[in-house]
C-alpha cells in the first residue's frame, strides 16, 4: 500500500473505532457528572456510584446473577463431560445427535428458547412450573453450544482416543482413565469456554426477563427497571456491567493467546 491509501485506511479504522466506542464513553462520562444539559457536562461527581453501591437491590441482583452464572455453567460442564465419555469411549454414533442438539440453541437464541420453556411448563402445577427451575434449565441450554465447542476442540487437540487406549493398555479402567487422564488434560480449554459462557449468562436479559421477571431479578433486569427512574444510576450500572464483561473477555483473550501461538508455530 502506498502512503496515501495507508493514511486513508488509518483514518477509516479510527473513525469506525470512535463510532464503536462513542456510546459507551458517553455513558461513562454521563455517569460521572451531575448534569449534562448543555454541550459539555458539568459537576463532576461519584454520587451515582455511591448510590448504586449502597443500594441493597443492586447487590442482591449481582448475587443472583453470580448464582445463575455458576450453577448453569457448572451443570452444563458436568453433564457434557459425562455425555462426552459415552461418545469417545463407548459409542461414537451418538456424536451426530449430540452435535445437532448442542448447536440448536445457538441458532434459536433467547426469545424462542424462553417462550418455548414457558409454553410447556408454566401453569402445569407441577414442580416443573417453578420459575427458578425453568430459568436454570434455560440457562443450561443457552450455554450448551459454547461449552460443547470448547470441550470438542480440547478433546481433538489432545488426541483423546490414543490417550484412552494407552491408559487401558496400562491396565486402567476406561472411566477411570477418562476421569484421571483425559479430563485433567482438557480442563484449561474447558475453562476458557466456561468463561465465555459466563459472559453470555452475565449479559443475558431475555431469559431472565421472560422466565423469571420480578421473581428472580438479575442485573440486566435490574438495569431495565432502573433505567426510567434514574438515568444517573442506570449509567453507573451500565458501566459496572460492561466493566465486568470486559474483565471476563479480557481473561478469555489472554488465555487463548498462547494456544493460538502454538497452532501457528
Amino acid at each position: 500500500m502506498n502512503r496515501r491509501s495507508r493514511l486513508f485506511a488509518g483514518i477509516f479504522l479510527i473513525l469506525v473505532s470512535c463510532y464503536l466506542l462513542l456510546p459507551f464513553l458517553m455513558t461513562l462520562v454521563y455517569s460521572l457528572f451531575s448534569e449534562w444539559t448543555d454541550i459539555l457536562p458539568h459537576g463532576f461527581t461519584l454520587r451515582n456510584y455511591g448510590n448504586l453501591f449502597s443500594d441493597p437491590e443492586f447487590w442482591s441482583s449481582i448475587a443472583r446473577t453470580l448464582v445463575l452464572c455458576a450453577v448453569s455453567v457448572l451443570l452444563t460442564i458436568t453433564v457434557l463431560l459425562l455425555a462426552m465419555y459415552v461418545i469417545i469411549a463407548v459409542n461414537r454414533n451418538l456424536r451426530g445427535f449430540m452435535q445437532i442438539v448442542c448447536m440448536i440453541p445457538y441458532a434459536l437464541q433467547g426469545v424462542i428458547l424462553s417462550i418455548s420453556i414457558i409454553s410447556i411448563y408454566s401453569g402445569t402445577g407441577t414442580f416443573l412450573s417453578n420459575r427458578l427451575l425453568m430459568l436454570f434449565g434455560a440457562y443450561t441450554i443457552l450455554v450448551l453450544p459454547y461449552i460443547y465447542q470448547g470441550i470438542c476442540n480440547s478433546l481433538n487437540a489432545i488426541s483423546s482416543e490414543t490417550l484412552l487406549e494407552a491408559a487401558q493398555v496400562l491396565g486402567c479402567g476406561k472411566f477411570r482413565a477418562y476421569l484421571q487422564v483425559i479430563i485433567p488434560n482438557i480442563l484449561s480449554g474447558v475453562f476458557i469456554s466456561a468463561l465465555l459462557a459466563e459472559s453470555i449468562v452475565f449479559g443475558d436479559f431475555v431469559l431472565a426477563n421472560n422466565i423469571a421477571g420480578n421473581n428472580y431479578q438479575n442485573i440486566q433486569v435490574f438495569l431495565n427497571r432502573r433505567m426510567f427512574k434514574s438515568s444517573g444510576l442506570a449509567s453507573a450500572i451500565v458501566v459496572v456491567i460492561f466493566a465486568v464483561v470486559l474483565l471476563i473477555t479480557g481473561m478469555v483473550l489472554k488465555l487463548q493467546k498462547p494456544q493460538t501461538g502454538r497452532e501457528n508455530g
Binding site: L75, T78, V79, L80, L82, A83, Y85, V86, A89, V90, N91, L94, M98, V101, I104, P105, L108, I112, L113, I115, S116, I117, S119, I120, Y121, L128, G137, A138, T140, I141, L144, K174, F175
Partner: peptide, 28 residues
C-alpha cells in the same frame, strides 16, 4: 451401564430444548 453417563445430558436436553420446541410447533 456406561450409557448411564449419557442420561443427565439427555434428560436436560429433552426437558428444556427438544420437548419445548415440539410443544411450540404442536400448539401453533
Amino acid at each position: 451401564t456406561e450409557f448411564l453417563a449419557f442420561l443427565p445430558f439427555l434428560v436436560i436436553v429433552v426437558c428444556y430444548e427438544l420437548l419445548p420446541l415440539c410443544q411450540l410447533a404442536v400448539s401453533s
